[in-house]
């Protein structure tokens, strides 16, 4: 059974120059113990769609969906109070900037304990015990001392560990990690990714990893969703996606990776830019930049066709034999 089920999620933002569609028809099924990665470039709507699930978007955002359910709770009609009971306990989230995600005025121990008090109603002693246990779990040395540390006394990697400790404090069923390692150094990034995967293995929670780093995706995820300009263009198991991408965008994105073109003179690129609010093409959103574009792509919007776990939004998928490098 799906933990989180989303059908046709759309998010529109009201701006000065009219309304702007940031997320356009996203379908999502997250089962227990899943590791799903959402990949896309900036502005592809990958973070916004997850923030919509969390109910963390500003009031200018209009969220519509055919279905958005978490364990049978309809997240579209849920009251704020009921939502607060789910968010932070059953669904937790960590963000890109660990330094600014923590409140600089309070010790990290206090901030973790606050979550425990809010959701699990533990008493003072139990809170302290659990906090130390959590810090130990996320690999922070000498947790009894670190509990009294303020965020500015810790490094970025340590702060991200604290954020993870806070997120898993109430045994969440789903952890959403939004670019958790982008702001960190490479060796620290490896540590944090390993930690997330290990925690996922131990606790059996589902993990949604939002990232733009293809390397991180390839090494951690089981299933990948590729997003482009607010639309979901492809969904595959991780091996399939990297060995035989079906959507021309995924294919071009993978070709553009420096490590895939070591023996080429020039890096393959995707010409043009992601369409903005004003210049959306009529047909397929990728058609102006697509190498395999044909007339019907320019005229009609391709529907998202799913076959099993795979899904694809393209009239003329890439032939695995001809990757067009």
């Amino acid at each position: 059974m799906s933990l989180l089920e989303i059908r046709n999620l759309c998010v529109d933002f009201e701006t000065v120059s009219g309304s702007f569609r940031a997320v356009d028809g996203v379908d999502l099924d997250i089962r227990e113990t899943d590791i799903l990665s959402i990949v896309g470039e900036s502005g592809s709507g990958k973070s916004v769609s997850m923030l919509a699930v969390m109910g963390l978007l500003p009031w200018t955002a209009k969220i519509t969906a055919d279905k958005m359910e978490f364990e049978g709770h309809n997240l579209l009609t849920i009251s704020n109070k009921a939502r607060r009971n789910i968010i932070g306990r059953d669904i937790a989230m960590i963000f890109q900037e660990p330094m600014s995600s923590l409140n600089p005025c309070f010790t990290v121990g206090f901030q973790i304990a606050e979550t425990l008090k809010q959701h699990l109603h533990l008493d003072r002693k139990a809170r302290r015990k659990r906090t130390i246990e959590l810090l130990d779990l996320v690999g922070i040395p000498a947790p009894e001392e670190r509990i009294r540390a303020f965020p500015h006394q810790l490094s970025g990697g340590m702060c991200q560990r604290i954020m993870i400790a806070m997120a898993i404090a109430c045994y969440p069923k789903l952890l959403i990690a939004d670019e958790p390692t982008t702001a960190l150094d490479v060796t620290i990034q490896a540590q944090i990714i390993d930690l997330l995967v290990n925690l996922q293995n131990e606790t059996g929670m589902a993990l949604v990893l939002i990232t733009h780093d293809m390397g991180v995706v390839a090494e951690t995820a089981k299933r990948v969703i590729v997003m482009y300009a607010g639309q979901q263009v492809e969904q595959q198991e991780v091996e399939g996606l990297f060995n035989s991408p079906r959507h021309p965008y995924t294919n071009a994105l993978l070709n553009a990776l420096p490590e895939r073109s070591l023996d080429l003179d020039r890096l393959p690129t995707i010409e043009g830019v992601v369409p903005g609010a004003g210049d959306r093409p009529d047909g397929c959103l990728f058609s102006p930049r697509c190498k395999f574009v044909q007339d019907d792509c320019r005229a009609n919007i391709p529907p998202l066709k799913s076959t099993g776990v795979n899904a694809l939004r393209c009239f003329h998928p890439v032939d695995p034999g001809n990757l067009g490098i």
């Binding site: 990697g157 060796t187 490896a190 293809m214 090494e219 990297f242 990776l257 490590e259």
Partner: peptide, 19 residues
């Protein structure tokens, strides 16, 4: 530590402990 898409390019991850 550098994550690689291609399994052939992937090296054995040398764990760097500590900060």
């Amino acid at each position: 530590a550098t994550p690689a898409v291609d399994p052939k390019l992937r090296r054995e991850r040398v764990k760097l402990t500590g900060e």
